[in-house]
Design a protein around this nucleic acid. Structure first.
Length: 495
RNA sequence: GGCCCCAUGGUCAAGUGGUUAAGACACCGCCCUUUCACGGCGGUAACGCGGGUUCGAAUCCCGCUGGGGUCACCA
């Protein structure tokens, strides 16, 4: 019987959660859920200078929003607590002591400046920038002496330099590294804290992590990690390095590439379902041609051997398409909840609105506009004509729909006809409207389009008779009159 | 620069020696229709290059080119 699967995602709280990190976390989560395993959230905040509490909160928020939950973590605890590296220093220290006792690590007194100079020289001479080994073979006496006088020092792992290390990667197969490529790297910093490599391996060991699923940027570091596990006489976990997500110019993702963090997409109105679906498809294929894959289906389908090997360039257009799909599938009530703060801010509704007529009408407007929106931004833009007076008219629309000299008189005719329509519902409006079209000897579009423009200021939107019904008789007639007057007065072209 | 990974349309991505080389987004056209969106139908568009292996290579091997990563007292 195999051990229980335990995976982890270990972000460092030095910024927002990136979509690359989110995808890696999602893959870990899917793998855990698929294999009845445990998903651990660990905070790698060994970099005290750059880690912030705000980033920590933001990362947790982003995961919650995405619908990715964890079984063990800093907020909910677990059998291997604590889950923040900054609170595990003593655990690292005891592991370091063990390695010191076994002479598997040694103190190095080289200064950062000295090491930099070494690297510069190596670069000039075209040699690989590896540690010289200057402090590797100090005599015990010398070591003890410098330690006792408090010389600043780090600790390095004593690597043997021979043979090769094979990383068994579930996505890439066996990757072979010559051990001569690996120098005596630092595991403990001069400020008396562990390096990332050290803390990460100690935690993966202590937390019984069985599979390390992480970004490809760590593949080159993996032989170091394997060396560390060997120093602890432990079996390394199974590795799987997922490809990176690249910006549209094929460079590494950074702020200058626009939205790269989960929170930015949330602020843009992207739904978590859409983002998670998109991230899944970026680097993973279900094998068939389905594109819409929700979390539950993804759990069923997920398998590391269907994860791509090559980096992917993200494409916001496809994300938006997915978002449109999920957005339209929502009930208007859910949508209203999502946009409530914004429409309150715009003054479309009172923050404490309770009038059922107002709410029912709002629901109707949302219902009609939602079906042709890709997200909340579109929706709110499309709702505008029903909440704000029309002050400008679409320029191209004006040229096309208001150019006929008869337009003002036709708009007035419509207003006059509609003034007598009751009940003021779409079907009744439509029959009356179409009768007028016949009387005027026009084609439907000849009257419908100018009226839409006069009523909403734009050339797109729900069916005209629904628009008229939503605006109501009084408002409709008023807007028609206003438009007619402004055409006559020539105050539209100026817009 | 050394080492490591990768390489199918603009983007995502099926494909594991024999296919007319899927599908999706985007783009274009047509249909539906009072507009837009949705939906339906159709179209443009790909195996980076060069050598092998093989009766036969997108698929296997080598080289090259290109992209990415890593070599920190960052993670």
């Amino acid at each position: 019987m195999d051990k229980q699967v335990r995976v982890r995602f270990a972000p460092s709280p030095t910024g927002a959660l990136h979509i690359g990190g989110a995808r890696t976390a999602y893959f870990n989560w899917l793998f855990a859920r698929k294999n009845q395993g445990v998903f651990v959230l660990r905070i790698d905040d060994t970099d005290r200078a750059r880690s912030t509490e705000e980033s920590y909160r933001q990362i947790l928020d982003s995961f919650q929003w995405l619908g990715i939950d964890w079984d063990e973590g800093p907020d909910c605890g677990g059998p291997y607590a604590p889950y923040r590296q900054s609170e595990r220093t003593e655990i690292y220290r005891s592991h370091l002591q063990k390695l010191i006792a076994e002479d598997k690590v040694y103190p190095c007194f080289c200064s950062a400046e000295q090491l930099q100079a070494d690297r510069d020289e190596a670069a000039r001479e075209g040699r690989p920038p590896r540690y010289s080994g200057r402090c590797r073979n100090l005599s015990p006496e010398e070591r003890a002496r410098r330690l006792s006088v408090g010389d600043p020092h780090v600790y390095r792992l004593r690597t043997d330099g021979g043979g090769e290390t094979v990383v068994h990667d579930l996505i890439r197969g066996d990757v072979v590294f010559q051990n001569s490529e690996i120098d005596d790297f630092i595991v403990w910093k001069a400020d008396d804290s562990p390096t990332y490599h050290f803390a990460s391996c100690v935690d993966d060991l202590a937390m019984q992590i069985t599979h390390v699923i992480r970004a490809e940027e760590h593949l080159s570091n993996t032989p170091r990690h394997v060396a560390l596990f060997e120093a602890f006489a432990a079996e390394p976990p199974v590795f799987a390095h997922v490809p990176m997500i690249l910006a549209p110019d094929r460079s590494k993702l950074s702020k200058r590439h626009g939205a790269t963090s989960v929170s930015e997409y949330r602020d843009m109105g992207i739904l978590p379902e859409a983002l998670v679906n998109y991230l899944l498809l970026l680097g993973f294929s279900p094998g068939d041609d389905r594109e819409i894959v929700d979390r539950e289906t993804a759990i069923e389908l997920f398998s590391l051997d269907r994860v791509a090997k090559h980096a992917a360039v993200y494409d916001v257009k496809k994300l938006e398409w997915l978002n449109a799909h999920y957005f339209r599938a929502q009930s208007p009530d859910v949508v209203i909840d999502q946009i409530w703060k914004q429409i309150v801010h715009l003054g479309y509704v009172a923050p404490d609105e309770v009038d059922r007529h107002v709410l029912a009408w709002l629901r109707t407007v949302v219902e009609f506009v939602q079906t042709r929106s890709r997200g909340t931004a579109d929706l709110i833009e499309g709702m505008r004509p029903y909440f704000e007076p029309v002050t400008t008219y679409d320029e191209k629309g004006v040229r096309k729909q208001f150019s006929d000299k008869a337009t003002p008189e036709r708009l007035r005719a419509v207003a006059q006809r509609l003034a007598g329509v009751a009940p003021f519902t779409a079907p009744v409006i439509e029959s009356s409207f179409r009768a007028l079209i016949d009387e005027l000897g026009l084609k439907a579009g000849q009257l419908i389009h100018p009226v839409r423009l006069a009523l909403t200021g734009v050339t797109v939107g729900p069916g005209l008779f629904d628009v008229i019904a939503m605006l109501g008789r009084e408002e409709t007639c008023e807007r028609l009159a206003t438009a007619a007057n402004r055409i006559d007065a020539g105050t539209i072209a100026a817009q």
